[in-house]
Write a protein that binds this DNA or RNA. Structure first.
Length: 558
RNA sequence: GCGCCUGUAGCUCAGGGGAUAGAGCAUCGGACUUCUAAUCCGAGUGUCGCAGGUUCGAUUCCUGCCAGGCGCGCCA
């Protein structure tokens, strides 16, 4: 349990004891005591902790809130860490504590290092997190970039709080789009020797297809010797493999590595679709109509039933996806999390239905819907058309603003909010970007420690220094912020809200910068210097930890 | 028509049944002979989209409406 949580539960029991004492004396009369809430108030002058219990109890106790608060306060145990208690506002009980508990935070960080803030909440539950899963027929876009940042950091956060998360990229290399892609490459290949060769009406006109054809010509100059069908099959496999390679490289440069790139074509090759259809058939969940085979997904709350095998005998996208999710479940994952774009929200119902049809609970599958990213340039939305080959790719974005800024920018917003990404702002004011603010705090501390070492001053351990010398307001603020990490991290992971961590990082960096301006370290007398060295060294550990979760570099100097 | 998301400062966005609703950017003042001024200190702005409801208390929860985005395929 973290220092903060321990302190909170200690206070809560003190309040509960006080209430019980008041009940025993008959000062308060209620049928049942509500749960005691305790929070760190937004305003510092409202104390280290505050409880609204008196407001909640006022009605059942049939007394004014402030009166209830007064009775509770009178019955509070006097010993312990509580330095002062006040009743404020409509009836809040504000607690002011001695600082001792804050110093424990430094001892904890020293002991745990970058594992500080981690916990075992997930109890090792096997979670599969699938995200990006962009079609292997072209470069990734900015929504993919957003998904990559959110998914990757979510995986890191969940691992930190005790889940066993695997990340996966589903490669949709067996569908219509892959066929169109193959025909596009094939046509461009033909055109290298026969300019009049027709390009498919629905083909991808973008330049990269042309470039692929040229590469293919060098690799396989004899391709036209193959019959058309084999030629297209080759283009499909070769082309999607090329795209996967490119996507993999782009994501790696972005700091995202998947545990597994799962190929749809492997599902087909091993008969997984037929197998899962059999299961549904045996459960009586299929029926034939209009020449097609349907899955009774409405039986599990879906809007309408879904076609599983089309009237031409081919499978729909959902069939492969059911087989894929079945595969995930068979691999022992008990929680499946998918991150999708907003255009897929209508897809949730049928996949949850499928999960249930396979015998698992509805909540086994959790879908996070990310909202769109609009790119703005010169105040105008950048119009993108895949057909015309005009779009800003993920790689363009990363080249323009950098990995760290791009990731931080995406992570800094709540996943379900629509996002306007102002390219001018990101480029022109890259020095003003919050990510640099946080990184600069890390660099500044690194610099202090470096210069200390040059002077022969090492960072002492907590046990060697008098931590109670840390009395400056900015120091106490910093200690409180450090103490808040474990709870913040757990909340962020459980709510799937990475943006809580970017806020945390900016707040911590801001408090450090204020401290840096107000207080000196290396020039102070030995005792104080030692205590402050411990403080900043531990701040650096926490900054590094949080930046690591965000997938952002922690530079030693800038 | 039905479903999902959004509506908070000039802009981009946080927050959230409770105390005086916040941050960054932008604007305007200050602060470097001292560990990095990519920093700090200070200044101003709000009908929390609108209207009802629940509540001791609503910007937060509920309902309706308005506005914007997206989706409702034997596409993926």
């Amino acid at each position: 349990m973290s220092v903060l949580m321990r302190q909170k539960s200690e206070l809560i029991s003190a309040i509960e004891t006080a209430i019980q004492a008041a009940l025993d004396k008959g000062d308060l009369v209620v049928e049942s005591v509500p749960e005691v809430g305790l929070e760190v108030p937004r305003e510092k002058q409202h104390g280290d902790f505050a409880s609204n219990i008196a407001l909640v109890m006022a009605k059942p106790a049939k007394k004014a809130p402030r009166e209830v608060a007064q009775i509770i306060v009178e019955n509070l145990p006097t010993a312990g860490v509580i330095r002062d208690v006040e009743i404020a506002g409509p009836g809040f009980i504000n607690f002011f504590l001695s600082n001792d508990w804050l110093y424990d935070t430094l001892r904890t960080i020293e002991k745990e290092g970058e594992a500080y803030g981690n916990c075992e909440h997930g109890a090792g539950e096997k979670v599969l997190l699938e995200f990006v899963s962009a079609n292997p027929v072209g470069p990734m876009n900015v929504v993919n970039a957003r998904a990559a940042a959110v998914g990757d950091t979510l995986a890191r956060m969940m691992n930190a709080v005790g889940y066993a998360v695997d990340t996966e990229f589903y490669v949709n290399d067996a569908g219509n789009q892959a066929d169109i892609f193959a025909r596009s490459i094939e046509a461009r290949y033909q055109q290298l020797t026969n300019p009049d060769y027709p390009f498919p009406e629905d083909g991808y006109p973008a330049a990269y297809v042309q470039e692929l054809a040229e590469v293919l010509k060098k690799e396989r100059p004899d391709l036209l010797d193959l019959p058309l069908e084999e030629r297209l099959a080759f283009c499909k496999r070769w082309g999607t493999d090329k795209m996967v390679e490119m996507q993999k490289a782009d994501l790696q440069a972005y700091g995202v590595e998947f545990d597994l790139w799962f190929r749809e074509r492997d599902l087909h090759a091993r008969g997984a679709l037929e197998a899962v259809i059999d299961i549904l058939r045996q459960r009586g969940l299929l029926f034939e109509a209009e020449g097609a085979l349907w899955f009774k997904s409405t039986q599990f709350g879906d809007d309408k039933d879904r076609v599983i095998v089309k009237s031409d005998g081919s499978y729909t996208y959902v069939t492969a996806d059911i087989a894929y999710h079945h595969d995930k479940l068979q691999r022992g994952f008990t929680k499946l999390i998918n991150i999708w774009g907003p255009d897929h929200h209508g897809y949730i119902g049928r996949m949850k239905a499928a999960i249930q049809a396979l015998g698992y609970g509805e909540d086994t599958l959790e879908v996070l819907i990310l909202q769109y990213v609009a790119l703005l340039r010169d105040g105008q939305q950048v119009k993108m058309s895949k057909r015309a080959g005009e779009f800003i790719t993920m790689q363009d974005l990363v080249d323009e603003v950098g990995k760290d800024a791009a990731r931080f920018f995406f992570l800094n917003r709540s996943p379900e909010s629509h996002l306007d990404f102002d390219l001018n702002l990101a480029v022109e004011q890259s020095n003003e970007n919050p990510v640099f603010y946080v990184q600069y705090a890390h660099a500044r501390i690194s610099s202090i420690l470096r210069q200390g070492r040059e002077l022969g001053i090492e960072v002492p351990t907590c046990s060697e220094v008098d931590l109670s010398l840390l009395q400056h307001e900015t120091e106490l603020d910093l200690l409180k912020q450090l103490a808040a990490l474990p709870e913040e991290l757990l909340t962020a992971a459980l709510l799937r809200e990475p943006h809580r961590l970017t806020r945390y990082a900016m707040d911590l960096a801001g408090l450090f910068h204020s401290f840096y301006t107000a207080c000196h370290i290396l020039g102070e007398e030995e005792q104080l210097r030692a205590a402050r060295l411990v403080l900043v060294a531990n701040i650096r550990v926490v900054l590094r930890k949080v930046l690591g979760l965000l997938g952002v570099d922690a530079p030693e100097q800038m």
